[in-house]
């Protein structure tokens, strides 16, 4: 395995594959955050919107992101876009549900207090809604980033020809290089851990942390 990693470094593939995987995860994840969180917060705020969208969300939710692989390839061809789309699909619903749930569990006293001090709607969103949902959103982001990292490996086995997922499949196909397979797995594990540590650092920001220490 160590020899495998050394091989990869020698051929300049290690950095290339890691960057390729991280690039796809970043785009898929960030796009999902940009779309899912505002939509989820809006749906969560309006009871009727939640009632309207809930059936479709519940039907889409049990579909594995991997089931989208054929459609991803049909729409985007074999390449980065297909992988990014798959990661987006894997992240969107969990983030949407997190955001909906986060809004709905804001204690009414915070909203009433905000209104009482004469906040306009935009100010209420920025000064009460947003800080009140942050702790739940951080938990959701953390779980979802984990999902994104799982999905990228699977997507790269099929939809592209670079990245850590591709490395594993390619190593097996090109002559049963199981040392490289295991090296790829170890790299995936280590990077996944680092991503989690990175996003957990958000939890240490003091004004984000309140719910963790609240009794």
């Amino acid at each position: 395995m160590v020899g495998g990693i050394a091989d990869l470094v020698r051929h300049g593939l290690l950095l290339k594959y890691v960057v390729a995987s991280l690039f796809r995860v970043t785009w898929g994840f960030v796009l999902a955050v940009i779309f899912a969180i505002p939509i989820g917060l809006t749906i969560g705020w309006y009871r009727r919107a939640q009632m309207a969208f809930n059936p479709i969300i519940q039907i889409l939710r049990p579909i594995s992101p991997l089931a989208w692989i054929p459609i991803a390839i049909l729409w985007f061809g074999v390449g980065d876009l297909a992988a990014i789309f798959l990661i987006f699909m894997g992240c969107f619903l969990p983030l949407l549900l997190t955001a909906i749930n986060a809004v709905q569990s804001i204690p009414l006293v915070y909203i009433n207090a905000g209104r009482n001090f004469g906040l306009r709607p935009a100010e209420l969103v920025y000064r009460v809604l947003y800080p009140a949902v942050i702790p739940k959103l951080i938990v959701g982001l953390r779980i979802t980033l984990g999902i994104a990292w799982l999905v990228v490996v699977a997507a790269e086995m099929i939809a592209v020809s670079s990245g850590l997922g591709f490395l594993i499949v390619d190593a097996r196909n090109a002559g049963n290089r199981y040392d490289l397979v295991v090296a790829g797995m170890v790299l995936i594990g280590i990077i996944g851990l680092l991503l989690d540590v990175g996003i957990r650092s958000l939890e240490r920001v003091k004004s984000f942390r309140w719910s963790y220490s609240e009794d």
Partner: peptide, 15 residues
């Protein structure tokens, strides 16, 4: 804002 409601101590903003 001319009349303020004081909830039990849960009303302060923890953030």
């Amino acid at each position: 804002p001319r009349r303020i409601f004081v909830f039990q101590e849960r009303g302060v903003f923890p953030w």
